[in-house]
Design a protein around this nucleic acid. Structure first.
Lengths: 215, 215
DNA sequence: CCCGAAGGCTATCGATTGATAGCCTTCGGG
DNA sequence: CCCGAAGGCTATCAATCGATAGCCTTCGGG
């Protein structure tokens, strides 16, 4: 084993902290709140995390790391850009919805501007830049309408946050349904030729299945 | 005059508080921070607002009141639903972008769940419900694809927040350009017949002009 | 059998929080 | 001319914040 499996307490801290951050915000949640939700005393938190913001950083890292890997794979892959973008959006949103954490409190400006989380803010900027790059490929190839890639990336981000917001704290039982709804919504709007939608959806589904088999 | 014009200090408190809430969040902003940005001492704030959350409530009220009036007018109006929805989205986003306040920190869950802001949370729920109603009209009339109205409403909300986030603290010099971009994005995705887009855009523009003349 | 690390606990710290008390100046209406 | 409201100010409060010190128990490897 390269790493010891994390103590269950550490995981419970992350889960409960993420829920409290979602409801009351990072600054509105005290370390005593978190400890109380976990069922331990406040100083015991510091046996697992050196500071409060380290809890937040761990949550962001667990979300951002895989997301960056997914978007990079989508940018580097070949095939139609519309299919790659659709499959990425479905996979990304499904992954976020499947996390045991409540990510609603993680991506607010007030939290990503903390100086201690500069590394996570940079990761998020890279994620956004790579997403915009993928959109730009589609625009340049003539697959998409001539829309600013950064605006489309922002739209994807906004839709993801909105879906997460609707869902609430529990991991989704069926994450691919809302995820596909978002991907369809985005591609209906960006596709230069809307008649391609059925074909794009089908190709995205088989691409997703191929990725899942590859693990 | 039915009401005395608000003292400039009160307005400056609202402006500076909104910017700080956007950057650090409501809970992350102290009353001393706000007072310092305004250039007064912390206890002087309480000559204008009885509590900290009253500042937040005033900001939300100034945004939600007009927004509710706009969506209700759009639901009650007659004409094609696509045109009404397009014009509402353009007008709503342009209005938010024209505010002297930075609204980025106002619509986070952590703030709307405060028990002291229950009234504002209800207003926002009504705004969302009315928006979904308008979308539902379009779906039932066959103008829109068969998408869940609540999802489309959420998408509009998410896109609005994303545009506001990109823009930053200053009121927009040209609010209608990004506003129209969002409205176009949404309607391209919802319109059952995408070929109607040019016609919808044109009718929306003349409708907006008529509303502006009416004041 | 023991010993040290892991992970709980209580007690406590200094800093910061939102809010109040009370004083002083400005200024417009009677 | 004055007087009271408006709106600043200083000083201060109790509560709460994140974090540290130090003690005790559990438990797995040698």
């Amino acid at each position: 084993m390269t790493s010891a499996r994390p103590a269950p307490t550490r995981l419970r801290i992350l889960i409960e902290a993420s829920r409290l951050f979602a409801i009351r915000g990072y600054h509105g949640t005290s370390t005593r709140d978190i400890a109380g939700a976990v069922g331990i005393q406040q100083p015991s938190l510091y046996k697992h995390f050196a500071t409060k913001h380290e809890i937040l950083a761990a949550l962001l890292d667990e979300d951002l790391g895989p997301a960056l890997a997914r978007i990079r794979a989508a940018v580097a892959a070949d095939g139609q850009v519309a299919v790659r973008l659709h499959a990425f959006v479905v996979g990304d949103i499904a992954a976020v919805l499947s996390l045991p954490y409540d990510v609603r409190g993680l991506y607010n400006d007030d939290v990503l501007q903390l100086p201690e989380l500069a590394a996570q803010a940079r990761s998020r900027a890279r994620l956004h830049a790579a997403t915009a790059d993928l959109v730009r490929l589609g625009v340049e190839a003539g697959e998409f309408v001539a829309e600013e890639p950064e605006f489309v990336q922002g739209a994807i981000t906004g839709l993801l946050l909105e879906v997460v917001r609707e869902q609430g704290p529990e991991p989704a039982a069926d994450p691919r349904t809302p995820a596909t709804r978002v991907a369809d919504f985005v591609l209906r709007s960006v596709l230069a030729d809307p008649r391609r939608m059925p074909e794009v959806r089908a190709a995205s589904a088989t691409l997703a299945a191929r990725i899942e088999r590859a693990g």
